[in-house]
Design a protein around this nucleic acid. Structure first.
Length: 431
RNA sequence: GUGGAUGUAGCUCAAUUGGUUAGAGCAUCGGGUUGUGGUCCCGAGGGUUAUGGGUUCGAGUCCCACCAUCCACCCCA
């Protein structure tokens, strides 16, 4: 039988593992320096956890099964429900705002293609317990901090954001019923992803009135914010309190982006709606500027989710970023550093009789925290140095009867050192 | 889940209209250049041509199925 990796999953050979670790290490480093704490949960959750949040249709898109005890389980397709469940369980004892992150593998039973696989690693950043747009902006800051950490600049990527709250307020002002709005949002999410005529047709289905559609288009074409009064006048609607509040929220968000010094990375874009229903405020997605790839990250405010999952109503905001698209972008931009593993020392000897001293030297160096290896085969010195170079060691330590020679394999310089002196303080010689 | 394209050593590719034991480079391993390195030279291993059927005297090449990958839909938490 010939086995291969399951469709949509990836094997991580050392070269790929190095890339994955490079990303995960950066995610963790950036999270910690932004004041977030790490958590994780189980890979398996009750299927209902996802049903409650997203409805039955989601079930066909995740890996689910019934265990021998008759429980309906699913492999986690995302971390937010797990996070909400964990927060809810201890909500009264956790100091707020809660700033947590996780680096977790998630599973989706969708058809794999470029930038999309069935198992991938996702970095999640969430701030729970703050209603301020400042928290949304802080999420964006963390994302930008990470991208910059990996060598990307504001001309490589863009954070496109908008406010679903404002959009909902406008739609309400245009006379749409509350229960009709989600369907309209779903259609608006398709704008720019569909050909214009197809989009127009879909919009016509959910918004029959032509003048209303015209106002929606006018709003979508806005590139900068006006006052609530001007906006209301432009769209021929009443400047409701909710419209004012939504606009004020968006302004605070933008002000925070400026204060954080990341406005050059960000662009207001009404085309950002986000597919799922639970977003309630600021939403954003991050794209490469050439827009040839899928979104690098997406997120926003979800003030109702904890309540939906049986907890109190607490404001929450956050984003998720996957490893697949990010890895592709960094590779394309040539931003992945040389990640091949390196040794500090490779210990060799030209005399087979000294093999025992080679092992003693190796042991001493390793105990001293020096990444060290050797060749298990006794060979001539020329071959052994070839081995050392092949392993990308920085230094070759040549064991001789009377002393050690430490050879810098980058410069070719070589010095003789008494063995005892070297082994007492090896790092002195390995600058 | 639907549609299209692709599938020959670990990787990149060869193989005349179907015609002998499917080749090369790189990589890997071994050896030599007789004890100081990534060069050079020699050699070896590795493929039931993704897999399973079928047509044919004969299939890497044609047909069908299946698996996987890529692309486009669906979806995107």
């Amino acid at each position: 039988m010939d086995f291969q990796a399951v469709k949509g999953t990836r094997d991580f050979y050392p070269a790929e593992m190095a890339v994955r670790n490079y990303l995960v290490d950066a995610w963790r480093r950036v999270s910690l320096r932004n004041g977030f704490e790490e958590f994780d949960g189980p890979v398996l959750e009750y299927l209902d956890l996802y049903r409650v949040k997203s409805g039955d249709e989601i079930v066909s898109q995740l890996f689910a099964f019934t265990d021998r005890g008759g429980r309906q389980l699913a492999m986690r397709p995302e971390m937010t429900p797990t996070l909400a469940r964990m927060i809810n369980a201890r909500v009264n004892s956790l100091p707020r705002p809660i700033k947590w992150f996780c680096l977790s593998n998630v599973f989706r039973a969708e058809n794999p293609q470029r930038g999309r696989s069935r198992e991938f690693f996702q970095w999640n950043i969430d701030i729970i317990g703050s209603d301020q747009a400042l928290a949304d902006a802080e999420g964006v800051f963390v994302a930008v901090d990470l991208l910059a950490e990996l060598g990307l600049a504001s001309n490589d990527v863009v954070v496109r954001y908008s406010s679903r709250r404002l959009l909902a307020a406008v739609l309400t002002g245009l006379g749409l019923a509350a229960d009709a709005i989600p369907a309209v949002l779903a259609v608006l999410d398709k704008r720019g992803k569909l050909p214009d005529p197809a989009f127009a047709e879909m919009l016509e289905k959910v918004v029959p009135a032509e003048d209303t559609r015209e106002s929606i288009r006018k709003f979508l074409d806005l590139r900068q914010m006006e006052s609530a009064e001007e906006l209301a006048a432009d769209l021929c609607i009443l400047a409701s309190e909710e419209l004012r509040l939504a606009l004020e929220d968006l302004r605070q968000f933008q002000q925070a982006l400026r204060s954080f010094g990341i406005e050059a990375w960000c662009r207001y874009d009404t085309g950002i709606v986000r597919g799922l229903a639970y977003y309630t405020g600021i939403v954003y997605e991050i794209y490469d500027r050439s827009e040839t790839l899928r979104a690098l990250a997406g997120g926003g405010r979800y003030d109702n989710l904890l309540e939906v999952l049986g907890g109190p109503k607490i404001g929450a905001t956050g984003f998720g970023m996957g490893d697949v698209v990010l890895g592709i972008l960094l590779a394309e931009k040539g931003k992945l550093p040389d990640l091949a593993s390196r040794l500090d020392c490779f210990v060799v000897t030209g005399e087979a009789a000294l093999q025992d001293q080679v092992l003693q030297t190796v042991g001493a160096l390793r105990r001293g925290g020096v990444a060290t290896d050797f060749s298990p085969k006794a060979r001539n010195l020329s071959k052994l140095l070839k081995d050392a170079a092949g392993r990308r060691a920085r230094y070759a330590v040549i064991v001789r009867a009377e002393s050690l020679a430490v050879k810098n394999l980058t410069t070719g310089e070589q010095i003789d050192v008494p063995a005892g002196e070297f082994l007492r303080q090896p790092k002195k010689f390995l600058a």
